[in-house]
């Protein structure tokens, strides 16, 4: 175990050195600022293809500028940050239960936290996208979000001398292109690692949980962790958790075109859930109390309801007492990562 830890550290250091070395021919690092993706020890291997897009200070800065710039939208009114705000772990504010796009158009889903995307296999509530680089395209081109074409975004960026210079500094390219735009955004978002909550400190032996939180953790492991699994708190599967029997939004079924997938949505990570209200794909619940009550007593049956909530034909949900629900909620609050939501690197400082 000790050896393992040491080896992991060596590997991490090796990675940093390698990153630095491989960037040697490109942009200069700012003195004293080492910007590298370092996997938290207790996290799984990242899914992101860093070998195609090594993180550099300049690439990250460009991605950050783009993330906060409404230039990505048709009428320059909506930026990524509109629906992904740092104080909410880059989920939307409760004032926007579902996304608000150009011309105040309403989306149909709640914008989730985009922390820890470098570790995810698929993206969006329905898993439409299988690579982080392609994620922004859907937001840019959705007519209820940014309502812009990728092609036109590239045109607008090239019309700006400031952007052309930044693309050149970051990637050595004479003009902004879509792949570099997407790479820059991925550099910024892949760095959004949330792994420093009270729970993480507890795992590392640095902090104790309270009695209630400990009971909550035990209950969580017993009742919730088959889906909200592992340190990412999601098994990344698609399930119907009994929100509705009317699949106005078919969810995963939109992608697979399979009736058996209608009403299924990606199991969300619960990291930072304490600050990412409202909950569920359609923002049905505004508090964690409502969420737990739903799992306890509020499930709606339908042909695709996850079998884990049923006992034969009977919907049983997750039987819990009020007290148990309260303990679980206290545990969920230990997943709030105050370091992440106050990390200067992700703050809009323009």
């Amino acid at each position: 175990m000790v050896i393992n830890r040491v080896m992991k550290k060596c590997l991490a250091i090796g990675w940093v050195l390698f990153s630095l070395w491989s960037c040697g021919g490109g942009a200069d690092e700012k003195p004293g600022e080492v910007l590298a993706f370092v996997k938290p020890e207790h996290f799984p291997e990242p899914t992101y293809t860093f070998q195609n897009n090594p993180i550099t200070a300049e690439g990250f800065e460009l991605g950050k500028k783009l993330f906060f710039d409404p230039i990505l939208s048709r009428d320059k009114s909506v930026s990524c940050n509109n629906c992904h705000q740092q104080s909410r772990a880059f989920a939307d504010t409760p004032l926007h239960p579902t996304s608000v796009g150009v011309d105040n158009r309403f989306g149909i889903r709640n914008a989730p936290s985009i922390a820890n995307m470098a570790f995810m296999k698929e993206f969006f509530w329905d898993g439409a996208v299988t690579h982080l680089d392609f994620v922004p395209i859907n937001a840019i081109e959705s007519d209820v979000e940014m309502d812009e074409s990728l092609e036109n975004v590239v045109k607008k960026l090239n019309a700006s001398e400031a952007y052309r210079t930044k693309f050149k500094t970051a990637f050595g390219t004479e003009e902004a292109t879509a792949p570099y735009l997407l790479h820059a955004l991925s550099q910024f978002t892949a760095m959004m690692i949330s792994a420093d909550s009270k729970y993480d400190k507890y795992l590392q032996g640095q902090e104790e949980l309270t009695a209630n939180e400990s009971r909550g953790l035990a209950l969580f492991e017993q009742k919730c962790s088959s889906c909200h699994a592992g340190v990412l708190f999601t098994d990344q599967s698609y399930r119907n958790n009994g929100i509705s029997s009317d699949f106005g939004d078919k969810g995963r079924g939109l992608i697979t075109e399979d009736e058996a997938d209608e009403g299924k949505f990606k199991v969300p990570s619960l990291r930072n859930a304490g600050i990412t209200a409202p909950y569920m794909h359609n923002a049905k619940f505004s508090t964690l109390e409502e969420v737990l009550e739903h799992y306890g007593n509020g499930m709606v049956d339908s042909p695709t309801l996850d079998p884990s909530f049923k006992n034969g034909e009977v919907v049983v949900g997750i039987p819990m007492t009020k007290e148990e629900q309260g303990d679980i909620i206290e545990f969920i609050h230990t997943l709030t990562d105050y370091t992440f939501i106050s990390d200067e690197r992700f703050r809009n400082n323009e």
Binding site: Y48, T49, N52, N53, H131, L132, D133, F134, I137, S149, L150, E151, V153, V154, T177, A178, P179, Y180, L182, H183, S186
Partner: peptide
């Protein structure tokens, strides 16, 4: 991930 040339979506 995002690629250039004939695979550039823009």
């Amino acid at each position: 991930g995002a690629l250039g040339g004939v695979l550039d979506p823009a």
